[in-house]
C-alpha cells in the first residue's frame, strides 16, 4: 500500500490547484449568463482561459474541456512517481477509444470520430489495431479484449455485445489495478461505482423486459452486491429492490432515485444522486492534508467539474432554460 508520504509533493500542488477549481459562484454566473459569449467571458477569468482562447468556434468547447482535463492529468502525473493512480482514472478513456474503433471498423469507416485524447495508449496505435496490423503497440490485455469483442460480434452480429464486453474488460482491469495499488480508498470508490452502475443496469434491463441472460452479461464484476442478489430481485417489482437495499450504504440514493424513476420513468434523478454519492466519497480527500486521497479526490473533482461545464454548455448552446439546467447539475467539490 502506498504511504501517504509518497504524495507530499503532489498533494502540495493539488492543494493550490483546488483553489482554482470553479466555485459555486462561478458556476452560478455561467448558469445566469445570457448567451455563449457571456459564458466565455466568465470562463476567461478562470483556469480554463487558455483552452477557450484557442477555440475557433464555441461549438468546439468539447475540445477545450478535454484539453483542460489533459493538462490536469499531466500535472498530477508529473508530480507522482507511481503513475498507476492516474491510470485508474484514464483507463476508461482508452476503453472508450477501443469501443469507438471497434464500431467504426464494423461500419467500415476509415478514420473514427469521437476519439478521446485523454487515454494513455496513442490513438494511432489503436487505429493500427483496428486496421488489424499485428505490431500495434497496445497492451496485451486490451488487445485480447478487443479481439474477443470482435469475435463476439462476428458470432452474434450484435454491436451491443462489443460495448458490454469491453465494459466488463475495463472493470476487470480496474479491479486488477486497484488490487495492485492496494489502497483502500480507491477500492472503496470502485466498489461503490460498480454497485451503483449495476443497480442502474438491472432496473433498466427490467424496464426493457430483457431476460436473465442479458442481465448476467451486463452486470459488472467487483461490486459488493452479489450477482445472485440481482438475479433474485430481477423478477420482483423495483420497490422490493429499494426495500432490500434500505439498510445498505446506498439507501438514500436508491430510495429517492429509484422511486423517482418508478414514478417518472426517467433515471435522471438516480444518475444525479449516484454521481453525488461517488463525489461524496472523493470529497473525503479534501480533509486529508496529504495522501492518495487528496490526489484522487482532486482528479475526481476535476472530472466532475468538466461534466458540470459540459451540461452547462450544451444547455446554453441549445437555449435550455436556467432552471432545467440547474436541475441537472451536480454538487460542486470545493
Amino acid at each position: 500500500m502506498p504511504r501517504d508520504e509518497e504524495f507530499l509533493y503532489a498533494s502540495g500542488r493539488v492543494k493550490v490547484l483546488e483553489n482554482r477549481l470553479l466555485g459555486r459562484s462561478v458556476i452560478e454566473r455561467v448558469l445566469e449568463a445570457e448567451n455563449m459569449e457571456a459564458v466565455l467571458r466568465v470562463l476567461s477569468e478562470t483556469d480554463y482561459a487558455p483552452e477557450f482562447e484557442e477555440l475557433e468556434s464555441v461549438y468546439d468547447f468539447e475540445k477545450a474541456l478535454e484539453n483542460s482535463m489533459k493538462k490536469t492529468l499531466n500535472t498530477v502525473r508529473e508530480s507522482l512517481k507511481d503513475h498507476r493512480i492516474v491510470r485508474f482514472f484514464t483507463l476508461k478513456y482508452d476503453y472508450h477509444n477501443l469501443k469507438v474503433i471497434a464500431k467504426s471498423r464494423i461500419l467500415g469507416a476509415d478514420v473514427p470520430e469521437n476519439l478521446s485524447n485523454l487515454g494513455e495508449i496513442p490513438v494511432d496505435e489503436l487505429i493500427k489495431l483496428g486496421k488489424g496490423e499485428g505490431d500495434a503497440k497496445v497492451p496485451e490485455a486490451m488487445k485480447a479484449a478487443y479481439g474477443e469483442a470482435m469475435r463476439l460480434f462476428e458470432e452474434t452480429q450484435d454491436p451491443q455485445q462489443i460495448d458490454l464486453f469491453l465494459d466488463r474488460a475495463l472493470y476487470e482491469e480496474l479491479i486488477e489495478l486497484t488490487k495492485e495499488i492496494g489502497h483502500e480508498f480507491l477500492k472503496d470508490y470502485l466498489v461503490a461505482l460498480v454497485d451503483l452502475i449495476n443497480i442502474k443496469t438491472m432496473v433498466r434491463l427490467k424496464y426493457m423486459e430483457s431476460d436473465l441472460k442479458a442481465l448476467e452479461k451486463s452486470l459488472l464484476p467487483g461490486g459488493t452486491i452479489e450477482q445472485a442478489f440481482f438475479e433474485k430481485y430481477f423478477k420482483e417489482p423495483v420497490q422490493s429492490l429499494v426495500d432490500a437495499l434500505s439498510s445498505s450504504r446506498y439507501a438514500k440514493v436508491v430510495k429517492e432515485g429509484l422511486e423517482n424513476w418508478i414514478s417518472t420513468g426517467s433515471p435522471a434523478t438516480y444518475e444525479k444522486l449516484s454521481d453525488d454519492f461517488l463525489l461524496g466519497i472523493l470529497k473525503k480527500g479534501i480533509y486529508k492534508p496529504y495522501g492518495l486521497e487528496t490526489v484522487a479526490g482532486y482528479i475526481g473533482a476535476k472530472e466532475n467539474e468538466i461534466k458540470i461545464l459540459r451540461v452547462l454548455m450544451v444547455g446554453k448552446i441549445n437555449g435550455i432554460s436556467e432552471d432545467v439546467i440547474r436541475e441537472r447539475l451536480r454538487d460542486v467539490y470545493v
Binding site: E5, L8, Y9, G12, R13, K15, V16, S79
Partner: peptide, 13 residues
C-alpha cells in the same frame, strides 16, 4: 517531508 509538500505548493504558486 515538509519540503516536498512545500515544493508542490510553490510549483503552482
Amino acid at each position: 517531508m515538509v519540503g516536498e509538500a512545500a515544493a508542490g505548493v510553490v510549483t503552482e504558486d
